[in-house]
Nucleic acid binder design. Structure first.
Length: 248
DNA sequence: AACCCCTACAACCGCCTTCCC
DNA sequence: CGGGAAGGCGGTTGTAGGGGT
């Protein structure tokens, strides 16, 4: 444990600090993180307290190893959403964004790279190291949280949610297309989006909007009229090219 | 036994968005 | 409307622990 210049403690949390934080959250509930250090008697910054609770102490956290199903879902959601860890974690009950991010970085990112490089070989694409990569326009992610007030704002007019194409190897600029959005084909993007948002696929809209309110598992998402829409990953995937993900 | 390397994951940091005054 | 505070996010770093040499 070390102290910062402003006197706050940094580094690994002690069991005593964990206990104090837990007692504080039990008593006052989550939120008002700026008040937590004072209430709990901790010499930690608000962000540190929030992170410790959300990533480690929260009772709902699943600390088991990722199951095959979870890995499968993670791979597919990452393909769809990119590095939107909080969104991905929202569909994996008990998993935190940090868990998902760490798991991806340690277990799956390499597999992802291998996938790209093997497809590159398949397509007989050789990398031209002397050619500098051309700058690709990328659709920036929308704000990470949707407030109730603005829940549908991104659905009015042309939205800016990411649509990540399945990994199909490298493009002409030697860049993996599964991690970027090529801005050159906006019409195609629009058609894909319309397809995703048409009446048969409103579950995706629901998926995007359900981040704040729901604590649902990946199986079902409830919409306004009370109907339950199946969160069908296969259906989602078939909207792109139906590529299957091979697991170890 | 000592050293090195790798993996896993907790924690930090900086930035962005939202909220409130 | 502008500015500051708070909440939240993704990227990155630090480090403990395990395995190999």
């Amino acid at each position: 444990m070390e102290a910062t210049s402003n006197g706050l403690t940094k580094g690994a949390w002690t069991a005593e600090e964990d206990s104090l934080l837990k007692q504080c959250i039990d008593k006052y509930g989550e939120g008002k993180w700026h008040q937590v250090p004072l209430r709990a008697g901790l010499n930690r910054c608000r962000k540190s307290c929030r992170l410790r609770w959300l990533n480690y102490l929260k009772p709902s956290i699943n600390r088991e190893k990722f199951s095959t199903d979870e890995v499968d879902l993670l791979l597919r959601l990452h393909k769809l959403l990119g590095n939107r860890w909080s969104l991905i974690a929202g569909r994996l009950p008990g998993r935190t964004a940090n868990d998902v991010k760490n798991y991806w970085n340690t277990h799956l990112s390499k597999r992802h790279e291998l996938c790209c490089s093997s497809k590159m070989k398949k397509k007989n694409i050789t990398s031209p190291p002397t050619t500098p990569a051309q700058k690709i326009e990328v659709f920036k992610p929308r704000p990470r949280s949707f407030s109730v007030k603005n829940a549908c704002s991104h659905l009015n007019g042309f939205p800016k949610v990411d649509v990540i194409p399945p990994c199909s190897g490298l493009n002409n600029n030697n860049v993996c297309e599964s991690s970027i959005i090529c801005g050159e084909d906006e019409k195609n993007y629009e058609s894909v989006y319309k397809n995703l948002m048409d009446k048969d696929n409103m579950w995706l809209k629901s998926l995007l909007e359900s981040q704040e309110a729901d604590a649902l598992g990946p199986e079902a998402t409830t919409i306004e009229n009370g109907a339950t829409l199946a969160f069908d990953v296969e259906q989602l995937w078939n909207l792109f090219d139906g590529e299957t993900v091979e697991l170890d």
